[in-house]
Amino acid sequence: MKLVEIRDVSKIYNPGENEVKALNHVSISIGKGEFVAIIGQSGSGKSTLMNMLGCLDTPTSGKYFLHGQDVSHMTDDEQSDVRNREIGFIFQGFNLIPSLTALENVELPLIYRGVGKKERERLANAALNSVGLEKRKTHRPNEMSGGQQQRVAIARAIAQAPPILLADEPTGNLDTASTKEIIRIIKRLYYEGRTVIIITHDPGIAQQAKRIITISDGMIKSDIINPDYRDEI
């Protein structure tokens, strides 16, 4: 079984007369170590798909197996545990906690995992070093640029080494230079063996991935190996 197995998943909002089929019998499987972009316009269902993939939401019908475990029908707390163990999130708006320093932000998922203080600091420091922020550890989010904040968010996503990195429009709020930097880091993480899934509406970003899945009206329109993929950082 693949790392991510979505089988015939539908998500229906407002069941009844005004129902919205955000996902309509979608099946996707993604193997370990893949680099996938999911591209779609707004309203295409890509956010719903991303929530599904990230175990933030459960399907109305169909099955989702993550790492061989059926995660389609779980309690809130079980979902929390799966997210903590399996998924590193990178959001468009960075989603750092403003009252915490960079280091404390990166430590958060480790706290919820129950990692002891010493080990936690070691892992969080290593993660921040790997995104080149060793000098910003004690800074709070409002003392950093957008690119730096996103790098903290990436460090947080990889600190406890989850199998999947799920990036939702990771460069949506960034200027060109920062975008390049973030893409470079994401690609490097892929080369280091992580499974990376990027959700985006931007074909330029999607072009960076090895496999491109196009979603529209809640259905998969195409699922191709990117012919223009370049194996470089």
Binding site: G54, D76, D77, S80, D81, R83, N95, L108, Y112, R113
Partner: peptide, 16 residues
């Protein structure tokens, strides 16, 4: 609210 959302996405349980 947003902070709570972030914490939950990172694996915070209801009890946390």
């Amino acid at each position: 609210t947003r902070e709570i959302g972030i914490r939950k996405s990172l694996g915070a349980r209801t009890s946390s």
